[in-house]
Design a protein around this nucleic acid. Sequence first.
DNA 1: ACTTATTTTTAGACAAATCTAAATTTAAAT
DNA 2: ATTTAAATTTAGATTTGTCTAAAAATAAGT
Lengths: 222, 222
Amino acid sequence: MHFTTTEENYIKAIYHLQQGTGNVSTNDLAAELSTKPASITDMLKKLTIKKLLRYERYKGVRLSNEGEKLALAIVRKHRLWEYFLVNTLEFGWDEVHEVAEELEHISSKKLVEQLDLFLGYPKFDPHGDPIPDSQGRMAVQQQINLIDLALDIPAEVCSVGSQSTELLEILKHKQLGIGTKLEVKRKFSFDHSIEIKMKSLPAITISQQLAQSLFVKTISND
Amino acid sequence: MHFTTTEENYIKAIYHLQQGTGNVSTNDLAAELSTKPASITDMLKKLTIKKLLRYERYKGVRLSNEGEKLALAIVRKHRLWEYFLVNTLEFGWDEVHEVAEELEHISSKKLVEQLDLFLGYPKFDPHGDPIPDSQGRMAVQQQINLIDLALDIPAEVCSVGSQSTELLEILKHKQLGIGTKLEVKRKFSFDHSIEIKMKSLPAITISQQLAQSLFVKTISND
DNA sequence: ACTTATTTTTAGACAAATCTAAATTTAAAT
DNA sequence: ATTTAAATTTAGATTTGTCTAAAAATAAGT
């Protein structure tokens, strides 16, 4: 069966919003997709007929097994292309998202599998998110929020909470990015700001909000 | 300015049909794009407003400079992706066309330039067609039709006239393909069939029609 | 030159994906 | 429990790219 780019974007949005609990609401979907709730309702009906999701009026929606399979295939393509862009074509990790949004809709199965082979079956994309394999399985992330990192543990930034220009601006100014190695030196309970230390730079303080939008994994200190 | 995939396909079709002489007719375009003439007329009006072509009712159409620039950009992307698929992802030269038809519509400028750089600025795609550079310039092909190749001149198949299943079927059966090295041994004026010899295979005869759909370039015999 | 055939265009309709505005259902609040 | 507020759905309209059927323009044939 074949799906339009629009349909695939709906499926992907539902997948991201339903992570964890409960049903996804029409309003949340409208916000995520920058459309009006009325448009969401129309499309949900259509996708229900196509058996990609389970939807009851006024009660929200969840993906069916079919739908989840499709979502994972799209996420797989998105993250593989991001890996390709950064590691093969030397894009910066912060400039690949938009391009991958287009590439993820290329339909060829063989293309994806050959790309995966060429890249060496990577497990994580440049933002630290896990790449589903051809069966839809993916590695569990051992990332933790920077706000939760214990003192003096060497760690590496491997994921950022969003792609907003505002976040990217402050990260650039503070010289923080994917791959940055750091340790937390102090935590201030007054405002939950934390002091971090990066190699060969003076320690700096970052706000609770900023720390919460950074994810790190601990690294061996050698 | 941004164009839809459909608009780009119209521009590309006109580009291919207008090679050489005269204006492109509505009927020819309809055949090329597998749509009805009425649909062509509608779209031509739209693309005229967008200044991509010069169109007078009942008199056919030609691309404007703008339109030609766009066409070359699309052809460039198509052929670069074909090169990538064959040389990097190890596709066969006969299975890349469809995928490239999708990839050619990815819009990122940076993606194309980085891909070109990664591939080493190739001049010809896997079918032997020249790849336009970022300015739209391309190498002139020194390919000649197999029917015109002189006797006993070593040559290499570098292009095929179409992608039809029928052609691919007979090529496979005769063990002919892009890259095949051969010499013409005899020409029969009765039916214009020719006898060709490939290394380590007995000589075979091929029909005029088949010879006309193969293009070769001469090679030094070492 | 006049009739016939072909090509091209117009007119009106349709499906997909969206919107606005109004109606309906569910949830919240007193 | 009734009213008010919020979320969701319906109804009807719009845009894009397509279609069919009919009309108009051009080309061909005698």
